[in-house]
Design a protein around this nucleic acid. Structure first.
Lengths: 359, 359
DNA sequence: GGCTAGCACTCACCGTTTGAGAGTGCTAAA
DNA sequence: TTTAGCACTCTCAAACGGTGAGTGCTAGCC
């Protein structure tokens, strides 16, 4: 679907969609003429609108109601018509400043990204923490809590932390635990799960039968945790901005709100989008009926990967198809750039700040 | 306000409130007679209802509408009239089983507690993680990430984990970092923030001027983190169950939903309740206008402390004043008992399972 | 051929009316 | 003290009609 429309039709389609996004009211021919000083009569605009409807970019709820964009209309708008203005310099500065302030607290990035994204794009937001595809063990720590209980803290090379408590077969001192931990650390530095498993096998094969019982117990947990990490790429989707979308007119019936809440917390639909976004670069837009899940028919998402090299995450915006796409896209693009920069700084990956130039 | 009502008035008040909680419709005199086979005529019940209204336990939206409980009515109901039946044995077993399955993953407790509480009580839920009042350093770990960046993992004695990245003045090897960490660990084992501060002061006073630069940098962060921990007892309130309350008729207007979402995420009103609950035992119920914040006038909360000894948390239910109090209270009581048991098991505190007997 | 004025036609929306139904409060009698 | 009876109040839903917004079509104009 290329630019097969006359200039005037493009203009009218663009104005109609912009107008509808802004007002959420079906847009009428006369309004367009009056508001945008078109040098033609309403009747002419009506004819053009009829053509655009014919082509599938607009619809009608009933005769004598204004035009409303279809999913195809939004798609055409996003691809060909939309103004691609970045966030204002002031906004960029404010956002970057906010991230700068929490830059040493990794887990606050996520929260901040969600909040800023939601507020900037006036929609709900989703963010996944930055992570590697495959876990590699960075550091293991065993901390004695009480007699036979201990805390295991697992740090993966992408900064992910997993904590788990374990019940020991017998009371062990902190020294025993530390000795075990450092043995594993030495042996499994930077190891992917396969190598940890191998070590576990060796350990089990040793004398006394079953080898070092504690090491086996711990390694077993480590292996499980790493497998879980590898298999559940989408388990950790944070969302925010419910309050933002509640003020949108499409959520004036609670039933709609309920469906949105379900989408945000079920992760079904969102989870399946993530892999796709991870394996592509740039901002991805999925509009209404383009989703593979029916419950998403009324919603659009704007997603982008962030990070670089091995360590990546996804962030984006979700809202009704009547979404301020230009703004949402700019926000997603800019915030993913900021997050990429932060990550690059941390891991010494060469700057993703090529984004910066673009905005 | 003691039991100053005749038996019949108590019965009628109890039935009226139960009926309203169940149906959310104003309750009429005739309905009570018919449904509960009272051996009096509707007119008699009307007279009694009029008295109860006089006493402030019930109201009227307008003539010719049924009766609706007031906050005082609910209060009287909760104190004197309510059936205190615990959760069914099956339900108890199911819940305990679910917790048992995630018992080694501390951070999943919170999530599970929130979900189970919300589902069981059919309302929104709030849960704070178990924590000590005062931080004591359990273990510090420094992990080299890249040239001049490192990850600091702080474990407090209550199992709380804080992670933070730090930028080093110069590139240091993992060995350097580990040496520094273990020096601090040795010196500050089980130390409250004051002792860490003291150590930092000593360190700074040493030669070379400023002492061990890395140690100072790290200790500074540790002190900050511990102070923050001590000062923000309420910062970490998880909530769940929005979906549950969306099906309640009081949330049929989105405006109500918005206010609830704001309450859940602002933490203002909830945060101020927490200290009060922490310093008292048993289940606390705050009904509508009894709240000190106006925005809570239409809502009730049922809260309980859980845990024991030094390490405690709060969990509870929040919903419209028309809440199924008996069920909410049973759920809060039981789940706090389960969480207390789990914590006791972990930290070897003598069983809080006295709760168990009660249910 | 494209544009436009004019006009009939179609709906949604709003305020009003009306009737029915639910439930109370009061009164008078058992 | 209880109750039957009844008038009265108020909500709710349906029906109605008028209004206004906006279209689609047609015929004439440039």
């Amino acid at each position: 679907m290329t630019t097969d429309l006359t200039d005037r039709r493009q203009l009218i389609l663009k104005l109609a969609i912009q107008e509808f996004i802004e007002s959420s009211q079906p847009v009428a021919s006369e309004l367009l003429v009056r508001k945008y000083k078109l040098n033609v009569s309403p009747a002419t605009v009506r004819n053009e609108l009829a053509v655009l409807e014919e082509l599938g970019y607009l619809t009608h709820l009933h005769t004598s109601a204004g035009r409303v964009p279809t999913d195809a209309g939004y798609r055409y708008f996003v691809e060909n018509l939309m103004d691609r203005t970045p966030l204002s310099a002031t906004e960029q500065r404010t956002i970057r400043h906010q991230f700068y302030q929490v830059r040493s607290e990794l887990d606050q990035w996520i929260q901040l990204a969600g909040a800023v994204l939601a507020r900037t794009a006036q929609n709900a937001s989703v963010v996944t923490p930055p992570r590697a595809q495959q876990a590699r063990l960075k550091h293991l720590e065993l901390i004695s809590i009480y007699d036979t209980t201990a805390l295991m803290v697992l740090v993966l090379h992408d900064g992910t932390i997993r904590q788990q408590t374990l019940t020991l077969d017998m009371a062990l001192s902190q020294e025993d635990l530390s000795r075990c931990a450092s043995r594993i650390n030495e042996r499994c530095a930077d190891a992917p799960v396969e190598r940890v498993e191998e070590f576990l096998k060796q350990e089990r094969a040793q004398m006394p039968p079953g080898g070092d019982a504690l090491a086996c117990q711990v390694l077993d947990l480590v292996v499980k945790a790493m497998h879980q990490f590898n298999e559940h790429i989408n388990s950790d989707i944070h969302s925010d901005g419910l309050i933002e979308i509640l003020s949108q007119p499409e959520f004036s019936q609670v039933e709609r709100v309920r469906r949105m809440v379900e989408i945000l917390q079920s992760r079904r639909a969102l989870g399946t989008l993530i892999p796709r976004v991870l394996s592509s670069s740039g901002v991805q837009v999925v509009i209404g009926g383009e989703h593979s899940y029916d419950e998403m028919r009324e919603y659009s998402v704007v997603l982008s990967r962030y990070g670089g090299g091995e360590i990546v995450g996804v962030l984006g915006v979700i809202g009704p198809t009547r979404m301020a796409y230009p703004r949402a896209i700019s926000a997603v693009r800019y915030i993913s750039a900021v997050m990429s920069d932060l990550l690059a700084e941390l891991y010494g990956i060469e700057g993703a700040s090529r984004w910066e130039a673009e905005s």
